[in-house]
Design a protein around this nucleic acid. Structure first.
Length: 801
RNA sequence: GCGAGAGUGCUGGAACAGGUAGACAGGCACGUUUGAGGUGCGUGUGUCGAACGGCGUGUGGGUUCGAGUCCCAUCUCUCGCACCA
């Protein structure tokens, strides 16, 4: 019989779907397992191998869990709002909804062709009105709880997308998505107060099982630092508040620096003797992009504010005040006290402007370089702090500042509030209206979802207005409070909105009265295992944790954290180790591989390709190797003899294999699990019995489910392989009766000897002493055996002197 | 600059908790099956050497009976952050 993978795969995919074999049941008594992967953005290019890697890995886990008796929720959906769809729609004059529908169709058929065990009854799409309704509902709750607010502020504006971006979407001052330059614009924007959750987003990382680099990256992004705010008096009578993490070095503050945008600079302008020079510097700084500002970070520039001085509150000394663009207006208070002796940047500036450097922490040579070590230093030149260690001095000075009422301890974050407005058409409209009488008003929940107007044209505008703004039929509405005339908010939500809670919708996707029922949320929460890309660590992953915590606070969800475990996959590179890209022409289309070798081969290769967490390059030859392996399994099927028990010559290897496959799948090492299965199949090359073949099919089933279900049926085993009960192993049967013991002479490997397993140590030593290899080497060295080290069942090391 | 991770055959990659480095696969070579083969099967394949044997996990040290694995130093690469006071 021929291995007709196309027919077999089609047959089983149909059967799985008809029988709803992989559908999850809320409330089942079985233990639950919720495995999640990031749902795709249905782009016009279709599914690529980058999707297939994490999807296949989680499918293998889900399939194994199911066979182990878990009630498995493994869902799929589409994150379908977004710019590429909108741009494509504009260019080709098709409505984005149609574009989305077409793309989703392609994605769905590709996903099905890969044989994933998704619960297709729970498929979701973020652009469905029934889904959008709850995205908008969550926004209203955020609004009502003071976490969504409108603010006029400088924002990142992508010159190509003609749209505002969140800080997280700007990489090296270009748009993360399209690579076009990002400029600053002053705009009124909807913001989400993610900063209110900064502490919990850091602290609760201790309670979840995320791979370490994800935790580190999130902590760094939130960027919590503890220090103090200190008030300096200016000679004008104004107060300059600074933020510092080193209040202990206050005695070493020899000048101050304000950011060029600091409000006091404007206030003081009339009394500055060098106002012109100051204004020129401000103008230069404003003209520079953030990129240029940080590019030029080698040489410190700045201008002294002549005519104003500050007083160091600890010693009453007058010190000069500068403006410089190395002080950021957006962090802390936009002003610093400069301690050149103990801060590298201040040191550079002091050298450039010839300012005094006063050592206040001993241990370095501050005339040569800034001494920033906080572990070893002892305070000097600091009055009542002298002799203390840095940590001690921090506490003492903060106490002193608080007592005098001129400072207090303070925690700062790099994290900023989330810019939530986008000036595009293809997103969820923000459910707010503006009434002349009542002002800003949220829509009534009963009026959700607020749908997009169905129009012909929705080109982005250059003036920063949403394309929805000119659609007066839609914009003009009535005020939900007074019923008078009102106008709708015309900005839409970012793509991150729908994906911030989608994992909850899977739990109860058709619910019309709530985002999901209490029962479903209680039963399925939290997601047990979430795998996704590192690129989402400070975007989607952080955003969704924020939303989830908020939903927890208002009693909607039962857990503080959405995901119990997070892992991440490496990229699949092209054949030569280069990134796959259209321009290089090295993109692998999963459909081509499926057509040529079958989905089981594709799946097997994707798992076998290498370490899941590392980048791997695609190899067309190695794909064939996996096809060969499945061919061998297929051919083995014709050499299966009767036998309901494992035969003695295969028993140990089978138990070992069950053990290895079971453990390796759980630790994302499908590559070595498959290697072990290949070893087993190689051992079976002459044939195997029914019991052995049955176990092989079960172990291979998570990786190559179609061929296994088919052969299972061909051999008349009961039920369906992919939902049969996972085989168990006996630890005692995982060991060979005879073992090869390595022989080392003085630590060098010389050969092996075969002994019975678990022999007492004395017997092993005796066997070694009598061993030919040992005797020969002892003689050669011309010494005596002084010691023998035995590692049970592994090795003996004979020390000869 | 700071933080994280990684350097193993011709290639992708294995190696539990320090215990036979190179599993498994690809490629290549030879043989064989075949009318033919981008088929199947078999054998070989780290390196030097005819062999005995020696040498081998980026580099240099160290700890240990024993190091790819641990420690110190150093080089290279990848990723993340980047004037965050």
């Amino acid at each position: 019989m021929k291995y007709d993978f196309t027919a077999i795969e089609q047959k089983w995919q149909n059967r799985w779907e008809e029988q709803k074999l992989y559908c999850a049941t809320t409330g089942s008594d079985k233990p639950k397992f919720y495995g999640l992967i990031e749902f795709p953005y249905p782009s016009g290019a279709g599914l690529h191998v980058g999707h297939a890697r994490p999807y296949t890995a989680m499918d293998v886990i889900a399939r194994k869990k199911r066979m182990q008796g878990y009630n498995v929720l493994f869902p799929m959906g589409y994150d379908a709002f977004g710019l590429p769809t909108e741009n494509y729609a504009i260019k080709n004059h098709i409505h984005p909804r149609i574009v989305t529908e077409n793309n989703v169709k392609v994605f769905r058929s590709q996903l099905k062709a890969l044989g994933y065990s998704f619960d297709w009854d729970r498929e979701i799409n973020t652009t469905d009105p029934g889904y959008m309704k709850w995205t908008q509902w969550i926004f209203l709750q955020l609004y009502k709880n003071g976490l969504a607010y409108k603010a006029k502020m400088p924002v990142n504006w992508c010159t190509s997308c003609k749209c505002v971006l969140a800080n997280e979407e700007v990489v090296d001052n270009v748009c993360e998505r399209c690579g076009s330059p990002v400029v600053r614009r002053e705009k009124s924007q909807w913001m989400l107060r993610i900063t209110r959750y900064a502490d919990r987003l850091i602290d609760d990382l201790d309670d979840v099982d995320y791979i370490e680099r994800v935790k580190i990256q999130q902590r760094n992004w939130i960027g919590r630092s503890t220090g103090a705010e200190v008030n300096f008096a200016a000679t004008t009578g104004d107060v300059i508040t600074v933020y510092t993490t080193r209040p202990d070095t206050l005695f070493g503050a020899t000048y101050m620096v304000l950011s060029p945008e600091h409000a006091l600079v404007e206030k003081w302008m009339p009394q500055l003797t060098n106002a012109e020079e100051v204004q020129k510097y401000q103008a230069e700084a404003a003209a520079k992009s953030d990129f240029e500002r940080s590019e030029l970070n080698k040489d410190k520039t700045g201008v002294e504010l002549k005519g104003v001085r500050a007083i160091n509150p600890v010693n009453g000394k007058e010190i000069p005040i500068f403006i410089s663009d190395y002080v950021l207006s957006t962090y802390g208070t936009g002003a610093i006290m400069a301690v050149p002796a103990h801060d590298t940047r201040d040191w550079d500036f002091a050298k450039a402007f010839d300012l005094p450097i006063i050592e206040v922490v001993g241990g370095g040579n501050v005339q040569e370089e800034a001494f920033t070590d906080v572990e070893t230093g002892i305070m000097v030149n600091s009055d009542f702090l002298n002799g203390m260690e840095v940590a001690q001095a921090k506490e003492a000075i903060i106490a002193w500042l608080e007592e005098k009422g001129i400072g207090h301890s303070k925690v700062n974050y790099k994290l900023r509030d989330w810019v939530f407005s986008r000036q595009r058409y293809w997103g969820e409209p923000i459910p707010i209206v503006y009434c002349d009488k009542c002002g800003e008003q949220p829509l009534n929940e009963s009026d959700l979802p607020l749908l997009l107007p169905d129009v012909e044209s929705y080109e982005p505008t250059d003036d920063g207005e949403s394309p929805l703004a000119p659609m007066t039929d839609w914009v003009n509405c009535t005020c939900p409070k007074c019923g008078g005339p009102a106008r709708r908010e015309t900005d839409t939500m970012p793509q991150w909105a729908g994906s911030s809670w989608y994992f909850l919708r899977y739990m109860d996707p058709h619910n019309e009265d709530a985002l999901a029922s209490k029962e479903a949320l209680e039963y399925w929460s939290p997601v047990d295992w979430y795998n996704g890309g590192m690129e989402h660590t400070t975007l989607h992953l952080l955003y969704s944790r924020f939303w989830h915590k908020f939903l927890y606070d208002i009693g909607v969800v039962p857990t503080k954290e959405p995901y119990a475990k997070r892992t991440s996959h490496g990229m699949i590179l092209g054949e030569g180790g280069e990134k796959m890209s259209k321009s290089r022409g090295n993109v692998i289309n999963p459909t081509d591989i499926i057509n040529a070798y079958g989905s089981d081969t594709m799946r097997t290769y994707i798992v076998f390709i290498g370490d899941f967490e590392k980048a791997c390059s695609w190899s067309s030859d190695a794909v064939k190797g996996c096809k060969r392996f499945l061919d061998k399994v297929w051919n083995l099927s014709e050499n299966v003899v009767p036998g309901e028990e494992y035969s003695p010559e295969n028993e140990t290897l089978i138990h070992k294999t069950i053990k290895k496959v079971t453990e390796d799948i759980d630790s994302l090492k499908g590559n070595t699990a498959l290697a072990q299965l290949m070893t087993l199949v190689n051992q079976f090359s002459g044939g195997c019995n029914r019991a052995e073949f049955r176990t092989l099919l079960q172990l291979l089933s998570p990786f190559a489910p179609h061929i296994c279900d088919e052969l299972w049926e061909v051999h008349g085993f009961e039920g369906i392989c992919s939902v049969s009960q996972w085989p168990v192993y006996d630890e005692n049967k995982c060991r060979d009766a005879l073992v090869d013991i390595a022989i080392q002479i003085n630590g060098k490997f010389k050969g092996t000897m075969q002994l019975a397993a678990d022999l007492p140590q004395e017997d092993v030593i005796a066997a070694a002493a009598a061993n030919e290899t040992v005797l020969r080497n002892v003689e050669k060295i011309g010494g005596k055996i002084v010691k023998t080290i035995v590692v049970p069942n592994k090795l003996v090391n004979v020390i000869v002197k």
